[in-house]
Simulated scan of single mutants.
Amino acid sequence: MLLWIVCAVLTAVALAAVVRPLLTSHTPTTTAATHDPKDLAVYRDQLTELENDLARGVIAGPEAELSRREIARRMLRVAEPSAKPTLANSNLLAAKVGLVLAATVPLLTLAGYITIGSPGLPARPFTERKVADVKNAPLDDLIVKVEAQLARNPDDGKGWDVIAPVYFRLERFDDAARAFQNATRILGETTNRLEGFAEATVMANNGIVVEPARAAYERLNALEPSRVEPKFWLTLAKEQDGKTTEAVAGYKALLAGAEADAPWRPLVEQRLAAIAPNMSPAVASSSRARGPGADDVKAAESMTDTDRNRMISGMIDGLAARLKKDGNDAQGWQRLVQAYVVTGDLEKAKQASTDAKAALKADTSAASILSDLDAIIARAATQLKSGAKP
């Protein structure tokens, strides 16, 4: 209660200081016009002399008219009364302003205090306001700020850990790989950092599993043997190294542990069919009849939706990156279009078909495959409209 009494007294004092001058009456004053008759006599004599000069031809008519007007203007200025305005109206206006201020200032002050100064309002520490500002800032501005911080402090492991996935989403794969590597060096090894570094390194090399990425996937596979993604990329590395027999065995092992409706299964089958032309995907899948191994069963059962999606995305991105670098692969384009169709991304499938036609326009042997791409997309579109999976 004492606080409010003090506030009321301070408000009254402040209002008195502001309103008192406005309510003070002022005596209106006016100044009567005063002039010296001698001045008017001088001007009259000038007019008479001007008329005489005009009659004698000393001055021309236009010049005489201008001089006459100037003398008349001076006579009017001397004869015109000057007065200061009365302040009666000003006093009334000041009183009204004072009353308005006396009524509104306390109300506005009270409203402002209730809004931002009440002790009962929850606290808003500076750190929370800073976090909120960061969340609302544009992504480019955030990247610039983090990069500036990392330039000042290259051993800020948390900063590298934060910006690494951002680089990856922006397809700045070289920067992402470097950021994941620095975060691992400073903060220590985790499966997420290993996976991020490996994926970024593969994407930076157009889908080629180079040695640093291979080492990271081998380490990831040792830490989490149930994950499918490192197995796939290690198998793809064998394929890229020309170790076809080992790659076929690796793909068969993946298929043996996969469920029949696994979303990534068609992509592995297509990869297997590409390196084993005499073995169709259906025949390759029949290896399940021998029964999956214990590790394969464990991998299929424990694989999460996130793992599946990341694996599928990595496979498709790797194939797309390779074709972007070297588009002279009709079967590769066909697999890419089919992969997009399987994942339901018909827009990317159409774009891949367009890119394939541009890359292979001089290859007459690819004409039949290119003509099939539009048919594949059309069938998928029809199936989607009917509610069936492509």
Results as ranks from 00 to 15, higher is better:
Glu211Ile: 13
Leu220Asp: 08
Arg56Asn: 10
Asp295Val: 11
Glu301Thr: 11
Ser313Glu: 05
Ala362Gln: 14
Arg290Ala: 14
Val97Ile: 09
Asp39Pro: 04
Thr191Met: 00
Leu346Glu: 01
Lys231Phe: 03
Gly332Asp: 04
Gln331Leu: 12
Asp53Gln: 12
Arg193Cys: 06
Ser287Ile: 12
Gly293Met: 05
Leu121Gln: 10
Leu2Arg: 15
Val97Glu: 02
Gly196Thr: 02
Arg271Ser: 09
Arg288Ile: 10
Ala164Cys: 10
Ile316Pro: 06
Pro281Glu: 02
Ser287Lys: 07
Arg178Trp: 01
Arg68Trp: 05
Gly242Ile: 15
Pro212Gln: 04
Asp155Thr: 13
Asn182His: 07
Thr244Tyr: 01
Leu234Ala: 08
Leu40Gly: 07
Gly387Lys: 09
Ser371Ile: 05
Pro230Trp: 03
Leu76Tyr: 01
Asp175Gln: 13
Asn52Met: 15
Ala14Arg: 09
Ala375Leu: 11
Asp326Phe: 07
Ala375Met: 09
Ala247Glu: 04
Arg73Pro: 08
Arg68Glu: 03
Asp241Ala: 15
Ala198His: 03
Val134Pro: 00
Thr306Cys: 04
Val13Lys: 02
Val144Glu: 14
Pro212Ser: 08
Met1Phe: 10
Ala14Leu: 14
Ala64Arg: 08
Val6Ala: 14
Arg74Pro: 01
Leu150Met: 06
Lys348Val: 00
Lys145Tyr: 06
Glu224Asp: 13
Ser82Ala: 13
Pro125Tyr: 05
Ala381Tyr: 00
Leu121His: 07
Arg227Thr: 12
Ala12His: 04
Ala216Phe: 00
Lys38Ser: 15
Met1Ala: 15
Ala200Gln: 05
Asp296Thr: 09
Trp233His: 15
Gln46Asp: 04
Ala284Leu: 09
Ala148Glu: 14
Thr364Pro: 15
Glu239Pro: 01
Thr127His: 11
Gly117Val: 09
Val13Leu: 14
Pro122His: 04
Arg68Gln: 12
Leu223Trp: 00
Ala274Met: 08
Val9Cys: 09
Ala258Arg: 07
Val13Pro: 04
Gly112Phe: 09
Met75Ser: 14
Ser386Arg: 14
Leu272Ile: 03
Asp45Trp: 02
Ser90Ala: 11
Ala179Trp: 01
Glu65Ile: 12
Val297Cys: 01
Ala299Glu: 12
Ala276Lys: 12
Ala204Phe: 02
Ser287Gln: 02
Ile71Ser: 07
Pro225His: 02
Leu267Arg: 04
Gly293Thr: 08
Leu142Asp: 02
Pro266Gly: 08
Ala16Trp: 09
Ala183Thr: 01
Asp45Gly: 14
Arg335Met: 12
Ala111Ile: 15
Ala33Ile: 14
Gln46Arg: 07
Lys389Leu: 14
Val342Phe: 08
Val209Trp: 05
Leu142Ile: 12
Arg74Ile: 12
Val342Thr: 15
Val78Phe: 00
Asp156Glu: 05
Trp160Phe: 06
Pro119Trp: 10
Asp155Trp: 04
Ala60Val: 08
Arg271Leu: 02
Tyr43Ala: 06
Leu384Val: 06
Pro390Thr: 07
Lys385Thr: 06
Gln181Val: 06
Glu51Tyr: 00
Gly327Lys: 13
